[in-house]
Design a protein around this nucleic acid. Structure first.
Length: 251
DNA sequence: CGCATTTGACCTGCGC
DNA sequence: GCGCAGGTCAAATGCG
């Protein structure tokens, strides 16, 4: 049994409680963050106090979709900006959280811009955009049709600004924040009895489209270990897009 | 009044 | 080419 499993293509299913105390899980996170942000987050220590006991990670490398001529003509007819001729799909990933609340608080403000019924699911999917006009991050929220208690949240893009709900540097912990406890999801499952061996380093990780990407740093390593435990600098990595900085200061 | 949400219409990609 | 499903737009509406 491994802590993660390749589902295929660019999708991996991670089935382990990612609570920041699990070294292997932490390494996986670091690796994902590094893939998304050129390993900037590779040396950061963090915890995920309440998120994703079970996580489905679905990252997409930046994908450039060239519009064909007919479409381009349509766009110009509608007066759209020429810059939009090339559509970039932002890195994207999703996670599943057991919660009664659909829209989980993540420290950012979102504006709902659409809702759609999903095929083979009685629950609609909601579409949100970050309220920051310069920020192009989107997120989708839907409830699992298989397990209605599970909320599937998909983020696309990276925030170009700081969290608004939890200013950086503030000392607020998830377990003593009344506001947070209201929306704090419960665990889907208990941690498995089997603690997996150290994660294998994959030199050619399918997630890593960035030239800056490096393999996972092994636990208990040499000089890098100190670097790993150092608090994140200005850049919090992709996690900063999800978990408020204050909630990551517990580690 | 300003901002967020709702919701039907429209657009786009993809499989057949 | 057509139909379907997902994604987005934008006017209407609601709310503080």
């Amino acid at each position: 049994m491994d802590i993660w499993k390749w589902v295929g293509g660019e999708t991996a299913l991670v089935y382990q409680e990612l609570d920041g105390t699990n070294g292997a899980a932490r390494k996986i996170w670091r690796h994902f963050l590094g893939c998304f942000r050129g390993m900037k987050a590779a040396g950061t220590a963090f915890s995920i106090p309440y998120l994703v006991p079970i996580m489905l990670v679905v990252p997409y490398g930046s994908l450039t979709l060239q519009m064909n001529n007919s479409k381009r003509a349509k766009e110009q007819k509608k007066g759209r900006n020429k810059d939009q001729e090339t559509k970039i799909r932002q890195p994207r990933f999703a996670f599943m959280t057991k919660s009664k609340i659909d829209h989980l608080e993540d420290g950012y403000r979102w504006r709902k811009y659409g809702q759609k019924a999903v095929k083979n699911s009685p629950y609609p999917r909601s579409y949100y955009r970050c309220t920051n006009t310069k920020c192009l991050v989107k997120k989708r929220v839907e409830r699992s049709s298989e397990d209605p208690s599970v909320v599937i949240t998909t983020y696309e893009g990276q925030h170009c600004h700081h969290s608004v709900v939890f200013p950086r540097g503030s000392v607020v912990h998830a377990h003593d924040s009344a506001a947070l406890s209201v929306q704090q999801p419960t665990a889907i499952s208990s941690p498995p009895p089997y603690f997996p061996p150290p994660l294998q380093v994959r030199e050619s990780h399918p997630f890593c489209t960035s030239p800056h990407s490096k393999p996972i740093i092994e636990e208990g390593g040499g000089p890098d270990q100190q670097e790993q435990l150092r608090p994140p600098p200005a850049d919090d990595g992709l996690l900063g897009d999800i978990v408020p900085a204050a909630m990551r200061n517990r580690s």
